[in-house]
Amino acid sequence: MSLLELDDITKSFGAIHALQGVSLSIRPGEALGLMGDNGAGKSTLMRIIAGNFRPTSGAIRIEGREVHFHKPIDARNSGIEIVYQDLGLCDNLSAAANVFLGRELKKSFGPIRYLDYKTMYQRSGEIFAELKSETRPRDLVRQMSGGQRQAVAIARTRLSDPKLVLMDEPTAAISVRQVAEVLTLIRRLKDTGHAVILVSHRMPDVFDVCDRVAVLRRGTKVADKRISETTPEEVTGLITGAIGAA
């Protein structure tokens, strides 16, 4: 059974039709690459799955059950974690504070509950080590490089054990070494039965870790193919419109 099923999703922002009748499904342990030109609607689709936007029409089903997300927290409770394209970090807080933002760990002293710095530093340190990132839990995000910020944003998804991880251009603006790390992480997520949707403009990344690739063009899905049955050239043609649909 599909983990996630999108059925005829449409999204309009006033006169702009960002998405038109997009249907998509993904199975557990599968990695789907989502590609398309700037403004094709990739981020909009991610945000609908993550509960930021409600679709203008269409249905979302998780494990066969129809869901209606009103807030990001609803999606998270259904096992969906997202790394946003603009990362969504608080510059004035430490890496650990950002990782645990909104789900801080607390300790109790009688009736008083207070932030458990020690465990949060320790746990985020472990996640950064797992991601092979040099990010230090106590450092302020303001002072971080693009790659370190990315690591913080990705680390947020590792707090829970999500069924589906959405990544909106996680490899934009980071170094080659860190790209390799992110791709390794995606493979590890797949191996442990997690599904991943990877939005990327980078052809090698998608062909490296994804099982399938879907292409959006001006809000419609023009292709959905197994990686083994397509080539970078074909996908490029689909993105630019040189190839109509496949």
């Binding site: 998270r76 946003y84 510059d91 807080l93």
Partner: peptide, 20 residues
């Protein structure tokens, strides 16, 4: 937690909202 959240909102209200 309240204090942490106030500081987070001051830093990036959008991110704070996305974090729930």
């Amino acid at each position: 937690t309240w204090g942490r959240w106030v500081i987070a909102i001051g830093g990036n209200a959008k991110a704070a909202r996305l974090a729930g």
